[in-house]
Amino acid sequence: MLHAFSFHRNGETEYFVFDCEKGSLYYADFPIFLLVKQLENKLTEEEKQSLNRLPSETVKDAREELNSILETESEKAEREKFEYKGKNTTVKALCLHICHDCNLCCEYCFASGGTYKTARQYMSEKTAKAAIDFLIANSGFRKNIEIDFFGGEPLLNFDVVKSAVDYGKKQAKAHNKVLTYTMTTNAVLLDKETIDFLNEEMDNVVISVDGRRDVHERVRKAVNNESTYDVILNNAKEFVKVRGSKRYYIRGTFTALNTDFAEDVKVLSDEGFHQISIEPVVLPKDHKLAIRDEQIPQILDEYERLANLYLDRFGTEKWFSFFHFLIDLENGPCLHKRLNGCGAGSEYLAILPNGDIYPCHQFAGEDGFLMGNVLDGRDFDREIQSRFASVNVTVKSECKDCFAKYTCSGGCAANAYHYEGDITKVYPTSCEMARKRLETALVLYAKEKDKK
């Protein structure tokens, strides 16, 4: 399946062709760009006229060249021999809701101020240890297992985080497992002790900052409504100073009020952060911060503007990586993983402070998705697990002809459930952004490869 797209920089336009079934990427000229768009049935009226105006010899020549990269019958037969192993139902990763409480009350929080619409709860040491035992007992053949400390704000329950990390290390060693930890924090409680601990123990740390001061303060408010921007920014800088080249992400959220989010990335880059991610908010359509359909074209343009900023700063002191522009075609995951996606509900589960098991943090407390409890010693709900395990790109009809299917893996099950009512559906707003981000990532991949 071929896909043609263009990229605009400094007043010039470049054309690319991506073959998603083979994972091949080409620079293309304008005639090829038009011919591939014709194959995709995506020519605009203006492009149809451009194609008609091209000299017939040029079109003939380009078509012959294009035919040379089209999938042959034997290549197709070889591809169709692929046997998808399906999702594995041995558990690999847990999202540990160490605390359902928060010192911020962000307006767009899907967790309703960190409490997930329930009473404030802190996970006990006993429950944390039971969760680790559950992970190891259910991890089967897997050697590499993971725990993500999540909230609410996990640092509000720092003592239990510390004891869980210590217990997990001992249990992993005893069972010949490699256990890695990650954490998502709002950075309010970062100090020397927590910074040193997270730097030592966490494989990745995600720190929530939204970018520009006014953007951040408009939605990320302290419980007492005071500004937290300076505290968070300074704490994040202290952490990054200690962190060096190890993995972290300064992660923001953009909403309907800041679809010019490249400016937020620019501010974060100016502040000295190099590993940055900005995610689109996902909210009910009637929410004032929800992204509206008419804003999508503007958002897609903004990703291109961000890519130009990325190229401007590439190789300078202000270089940055952007999570959604990371792609590694030559050393990427195998097709099995690309079809599996995140593994929510099958190999990745969320454990709430009281030990309840849910398919992932986005399903926490959701009616009909409670899978059991790590404290009761019984097996968890395998029926729900198999329902999630059966959902992958190959069963989503909307993904069949999408060139991004092997990178987005069919999208987020929780978004599909909350906004389309069914985990086997896709969430169309995310689809458009995922396609644009892939195109942009491919362009940057080509540019970086050229520079090497």
Partner: peptide, 24 residues
């Protein structure tokens, strides 16, 4: 080729599936 220049080719790996890579 005159109209196309390959950047990378045939990078999708259909082997693998060991299940050890990370699970959002």
């Amino acid at each position: 080729m005159k109209h196309l220049k390959a950047i990378v080719k045939d990078t999708i790996r259909r082997d693998g599936g060991c299940g050890e890579c990370q699970s959002c």
